[in-house]
Structures are given as C-alpha cells and as structure tokens.
C-alpha cells in the first residue's frame, strides 16, 4: 500500500508549514505526526515516519528521535481503542488503582497489552490535567471523568459496539 495523506490532509499540512518562518518547516513535525498517526491506523511505522520526513524535507532520523520521545506517539501497533488510565497522585487518591484493576479483569489483559480481538490496548499514563474529576481515562480525543467501575463497564461495551478506531484528532465520545 502506498503511504500518502488524503488530499484534504495534505492541504492541511501545507497550511501548517506556512505558520513558521521560511526554512523552519521542521516546526510542523509534531502537528504532522499527530495527523499521520490518526490517518495511518493509530501508530507510526517506519515507512510512515519516512513519508513525514520527506514531506518536511528533513532526515528520517529527525522524525524517529522525536516520535520516540513523546508519549502520545505509538511506534508499535495499538488496538482500536487505546485506553489510557491516569495513575498519578491525585487520581490515585480517588481510586485510579481500582479502575486499572477492574479494566485488567474486564478486558482480560495486563497493562501494556492488547486484547486478543485487537480492540483494546490498556495503558497507564501520568497526570492528564483532570485531577479534579478523578479517576479518569482518555480514549482517543475524549476524556472520561469521575469514573466508577459501572461507568467503565458501560464505556467498554459502547466502544466495542462503535467499532471505530479512536484517534486523538477526532472525538468519538460515548455517553456514559
């Protein structure tokens, strides 16, 4: 399969590059990596990163070193729903551990694993700026806050039924 952004995304990429001074197109790297991850199955394979490098006229290594530095970029495939549960202090104080444990049991996987059907990947993350509505998790663009195990159950069912790939770029919010 040839790796190429849609016409619409390419236009957006060109618009983003114009924000920066001449010769500083590398500044577009983070925004463009976000677009690439959303468009190419939720992760950044080497061919995808090479493609981004060619678009920005920079060396592939400049893309790899950035992609591996930031926690939002996946350099391995992930399930359609990447469930990221915050585990830092304030969330822990309000029961984040119970949410993680519940998800592990419910999805029958450990943190860091993907469910057999390829739908769910479970990850723990650090403070997402939602400490006042803890415990919370992020799936794609959406924050789910003030969680209880019942709400988590409902969310998992709804995400399963929705069948969509969740990306940081587009909301797929489920009512829970």
């Amino acid at each position: 399969m040839e790796i190429k952004f849609s016409e619409e995304t390419l236009n957006l990429v060109n618009k983003i590059i114009k924000r920066y001074p001449e010769g500083r197109q590398k500044s577009a790297l983070l925004p463009v990596l976000h677009l690439a991850q959303a468009e190419f199955d939720g992760w950044l394979s080497s061919p995808v990163m090479d493609y981004v490098a060619s678009l920005l006229n920079i060396k592939p290594i400049e893309v790899y070193e950035v992609a591996t530095f930031y926690s939002m970029f996946n350099t391995e495939p992930v399930g359609k729903c990447l469930i990221e549960v915050c585990q830092t202090g304030p969330c822990w104080l309000r029961g984040a551990d119970d949410i993680v444990e519940h998800l592990e049991r419910k999805l029958n996987i450990k943190v860091g694993e993907t469910s057999a059907d390829g739908v769910f990947t479970l990850k723990t993350v650090e403070c997402l700026g939602s400490c006042g509505t803890a415990p919370m998790l992020q799936c794609g663009a959406d924050y789910y806050e003030n969680l209880t195990t019942e709400k988590v159950d409902m969310l998992i069912e709804k995400l399963k039924t929705s069948g969509q790939r969740n990306t940081y770029m587009k909301s797929n919010r489920q009512e829970i």
Binding site: L30, P31, F69, Y70, M72
Partner: peptide
C-alpha cells in the same frame, strides 16, 4: 499580528 496553536506530544 498572527496567532497559532501548536500541539505538544505528551511530555511534562
């Protein structure tokens, strides 16, 4: 004046 928003990538 021009004003732009830049997203980070997840790094405290």
């Amino acid at each position: 004046h021009d004003l732009y928003v830049q997203p980070g990538g997840g790094a405290y």
